[in-house]
Each structure stands twice: as C-alpha cells, then as structure tokens.
Design a protein around this nucleic acid. Structure first.
Lengths: 228, 228
DNA sequence: CGCTGCTTTGATTCGTATCAATAGCAGTGG
DNA sequence: CCACTGCTATTGATACGAATCAAAGCAGCG
C-alpha cells in the first residue's frame, strides 16, 4: 500500500477531496513504483490491467504507425493520471522520459472503486474532458500549423505547464524534460526541422538556448505571434 | 420538454439506462431543436451554456487557427453527445453538415443533474474516454501519415462508423455525409490533394466513386494496407 | 438553358523530409 | 586530466510530397 499522507501530489491528484476513510481504502489498493528514464510502463495494444498516478517525473504517451513512425499523443506530469480505466487494452504506450515514480492501481479494483465513488469519478471525468480539449487543440496544430508555428506553440505550452507545476520560478527560463527527437515526435516533425526552427528563433533573438535542454524566452509577444 | 419515449436514440444515447423517473426529470430539461445543414450551434470561444444529444444528422467540431485555416477535430452522429460539460467556453465550433436534430439541455442544469446521478456521469465518462482514444489516434494520423494513408484510414473509419450507425446494409458501399473540402479539413490536407488521392485509388481499382458522395470499396484488404 | 458552386485536373512552387557529414557534449577508462 | 567512444544535436545539399495557383469539367437548380 501507499502512504497517502506523505504523497507529494495528494492535493492535486484525483485522490484529492476524498474522505479520510475513502483515502485509506484507495491507499490500500495502490503501490508505489519507480521507473527509470526510458523504461516503458504500458505497451500499446497490450491488455495491461493497471492505472496510475504520477508522483514524480515526466512520461510520454506514444502511438506508433505500422511503418514505425512515432507520434507522442500526450505528456504527463506529477499529479496527472495514467491509463485507460474501463477499457481492455491500452491504445498507446506509456514511457518515462525522466526518472519517475508512480502510484499504481489494479485497473479492475480501481474501476470498481470509481464506480462506487461518484466524487472520484467526477474528478476523473473533469480530467478526461480537459485532456480531450488539449488533444483536439493539438489535432489542429498537427493538421494545420507550419513547422515554425508548431515549435513556437510548443515552447509556450511547455512553459505554461512547467510553471503550473510550480517548479520554475521564472516562466521565461526553463529546463525541457525532452530531447530534440521527442520534441519532433510531439510536433509531428523531424528532428532536423525542429532543430532548424530553434536555431532560427535564436538568431532572430526570440530566445536563447544556453544548453541542450535549457530555453530562455526573450520575446514572448513575438513568440505568441509566431505560434499563429 | 422532450418526449423521450419517442426518441430515436433513447437506447443508445447517454440517457439510456436511466430509471423512468430519472428519465422524466431529464426529459423535462431537454428541448428538441432542428438545425439546417451549414448552421452553427456553438461558436469556438463563446460561452454557450448548453450541451446536447444528437438525434438525427451529422455535425462537425471545428478548431480554426488564427490564420483562418480550419481543422475538423471531431464528427458526431446520432446518439453522440455534444458540448463541454463542466467548462466555461466551447473550445471548438459545432456546425451541422447535414440537416440535423438535437436534444438540448441547459449546461448548468445538466451539470447539476449529472453531478447527482452517478449513472449518467459514468456514461459520460465512458464516452469521453472513447473520444479521447479516437482523438489520440487521429493525432498520430495527422502528425505521421502521408496523404494516401490518411485518405485510406478515413474511408475505413467512416465505413465502420456508418455501419455501426446501422443505416447501411453493406459496409463496402456507403454515402459520405461530407463534401471534399470537409474531408480535407478532417485529414489536414487540401481539397486538391484529397481529390487526387481518391482519383488514384479509383484508377488503382481500390474503389469506385459512382457519384460525388458515394464510395464503393472494392478491395478492403488493399485499403487496409494502404492505411498503414 | 445558363447560372452557381463543387470537383477534378494540370503546372508550378514551396516547405519539410531525407540523406549525409560534422560538431559538441557526457560518460568511461587509461 | 585527457583521449576515446557513443550519443545527441546541428548544419548542409538535395529530393519529394503536398500546397498553391489556375483553369476546366460537371452536377444541381432556378
């Protein structure tokens, strides 16, 4: 079981707002697990009977085409929920892109618990609706935006999500949890195109790239214009 | 109020499975509305306080980029649910692409009803999870598939959804509810590219296009291969 | 019959992918 | 501490697929 009292995300994850006894019951069902960067928790197409909360780290949701091309269809941060409740098989893989820690539940037990705890189900519904909105916005980006618009949109989005996570003091300077290939897989581009766009933005003075993973936005206004 | 007893989708929409008295209460809140093809029910960004069930017809969910390019992020059929419960503004427009009829609820009343009826909320959650899976698969299509793969995937998907609707006797011959521009807006392509792919598929013997909106799939196996 | 709007086909341009090579950083072991 | 190795990132040259621009074809409708 998990020790919910010491949980880093207990006020933000779906568990928040549960009664103490409900929390105890759910806590009985969960167990913590460490995942090393690069390791995969769920495989696309597998019937993996688990769901989880992210306690620490960043993970990606990946759908692969039959030709082996990969598209990242979601990125989850601490307090986010992982998995496909009320479903047979996972429609995507879930892989840690940094070292991570998750709180795992058996899916059937979780489903049963959710079905009998409307509070929790409502939280899950709200989260799923938010995810759906995000996915649909991303569909527009993937279907209709140019490479430069995509990269600008990505940087603004990540900057927002990282500061919402509260880690970064300054929304304009942040550490990407992604390598270039992963950014490309999020944006539906190649690594070369992604790279060229970043280089151009740097030479245009929009941003600085002090190290591989560090971004400093100089002109957010211009970047918003570029994001389209 | 709506007459649920005569409702064409009462066994398939989220209302199914409600007790008779719950159904009566929900029925009190709903009213039917006709929508002509081309008319818009919800505007992107507006705070439109309504949600709805589709009774008849087909509608599209559209997100526009600031440059005016349109991406269709969802297509809804009879028994599907429309709108953004528990949210302020609609993240997309909803426009009828055929003449349609919907059963409309005030969003606040619906939210309140859903919050007190776990059964309904669970149905809504299941639907939303399914929509999310579909959206994520579509993200992969938009980010990673070529024009021919997209068109093939689209035809297979629509064929499936139409036969699931039960209207068509033959899954291989069906009537598209979309014009070419709309197909292009679903696939993140231009109308010309969409057209050329269809023409090529016809000359390759994969399908026939007896009229503008009619598709007859001749070689489903080959089309599945082409869909990637 | 002749509009009108949608669709198809053609010619060309442009953006991004691909292919190829180099550069730079991080970790390893001498 | 530095050479070595492997991996990630960057830059360059070219190819290719889809967009764009332009025009013609075709169906539905007054």
């Amino acid at each position: 079981m998990s020790d919910c009292a010491s949980c880093a995300v207990r006020n933000r994850a779906i568990c928040s707002g549960l009664d103490p006894d409900e929390l105890a019951e759910l806590g009985q069902m969960g167990r913590r697990q460490q995942i090393k960067a690069g390791h995969t928790l769920l495989w696309e197409g597998d019937d993996v009977p688990l769901v989880a909360n992210v306690l620490r780290g960043v993970l990606k949701l990946v759908v692969a085409s039959s030709a082996g091309r990969e598209q990242i269809v979601g990125v989850v941060f601490p307090s986010d929920f992982i998995g496909r409740p009320f479903g047979e098989e996972s429609p995507y893989s879930v892989t840690a892109i940094t070292d991570a820690e998750v709180c795992i539940y058996n899916r059937n037990s979780f489903d049963a618990f959710a079905s009998t705890h409307p509070h929790l189900q409502q939280k899950l519904l709200h989260r799923t609706l938010d995810e759906l909105d995000r996915a649909r916005y991303w569909m527009m980006l993937l279907g209709r935006k140019s490479a430069s618009e995509r990269v600008a949109s990505f940087l603004l989005d990540i900057s927002d999500r990282l500061s919402a996570q509260g880690g970064e003091a300054d929304a304009e300077a942040f550490e990407l949890p992604f390598g270039r290939q992963q950014i490309a897989d999020i944006l539906g581009l190649t690594i070369e195109t992604t790279c060229r766009q970043l280089t151009r933005m740097r030479s245009d003075g929009l941003l600085d790239l002090p190290s591989r993973r560090t971004v400093v936005i100089h002109d957010r206004r211009a970047m918003e214009r570029m994001a389209g």
